[in-house]
Computed example of a mutant assay.
Amino acid sequence: MQTTLTRLLGAATLASATLLAGCGGDDADTETRSIKVGTMSGPESEVMEVAVQIAPERYDLQVEIIEFTDYVSPNAALADGSLDANAFQHEPYLQSMVDDRGYDLTVAGYTFVYPIGAYSERHTDIADLPERALIALPNDPTNGGRAMILMHNAGLIELDDPENLEATPVNVVDNPNDFRFREIEAAQLPRVLPDVDLAFINNTFAQPAGLSLDDALIKEGPDSPYVNLIAVRSGDEEREEIQQLVSAYQSDEVAAKALELFDGGAVPGWE
């Protein structure tokens, strides 16, 4: 009796184990490969959406976009594991975040150059800027530095080191027209444009505000070193899903969408 009962229990246990194993196998077979990528809300997200459509078709990879409106949070989210990648910054800015905050992040691939330009609703020529003109700058170190270098190159000011990518108003050694500077969060610069004489605005934020790079009084050229990139945690740059995301992004379809949205103000950085 006991032997028969033991055999019955053993058979039932084996059957249950077989059933569970079968269920587990089905789950493994149907497991979805997916990653999360952070972008800036607006046209940059629209460009990424094209890559999101390509990824499952070509690589059986699902990509979820997480949108941000500031330049600090996407790297914090990547560093703490909330994201698998982000695509919003150029290498000098990434390096500044690594140096300042100790993030262990690196480059997985390149996206576009989004030139920065100086816009004005009060003046039509850079030579028209008056004495004590109020100039708005991005308040993050590297984009503020881009603006300072552009002003130096245009002869508006003189910097102590024009090669310093993180120059600020403190680095101005000659300001013959006594220009005043106001450092403002990059996303807010289009809103303050009516209240200042000149505002340096990344094309990422200029285009959604109806500003064309053609209207900028001064602007970066196509040889700008500020190529945006896809960043990941160090060690993940060779991860299959990341390389597939990069490949999906560096496609003709994505380049065409950026051309449409930025009207020539986005230059592919992988070509």
Rank of each mutant, 00 (worst) to 15 (best):
Y226V: 03
G264S: 07
T142N: 12
L245V: 11
R132Q: 15
A118Q: 04
G210V: 05
A15Q: 03
G221P: 00
N75S: 15
T39Y: 07
L245P: 10
V52C: 02
V232R: 00
W270N: 06
L19G: 01
D197P: 08
L83S: 08
G81D: 10
T3P: 02
I157P: 06
I65Y: 01
R180T: 13
V50Y: 01
L83M: 11
A51P: 03
T204V: 15
I218K: 00
A17I: 13
E31R: 15
G264Y: 06
T6R: 13
M97S: 05
P222N: 05
V63P: 11
A206R: 10
D161G: 08
L8C: 02
L78E: 05
K219Y: 01
L20Q: 02
D80E: 14
N164D: 15
L5K: 14
L150W: 03
D70H: 06
E49Q: 14
A256C: 06
A216I: 00
P138M: 09
Q53F: 01
A21I: 01
V227L: 12
P225I: 13
V63G: 07
G145K: 07
V98H: 02
S247N: 11
S247Y: 03
N153Y: 03
A87S: 14
H90K: 02
I54D: 03
A118L: 05
G24A: 01
L229W: 04
E57V: 13
E237Q: 15
L211M: 07
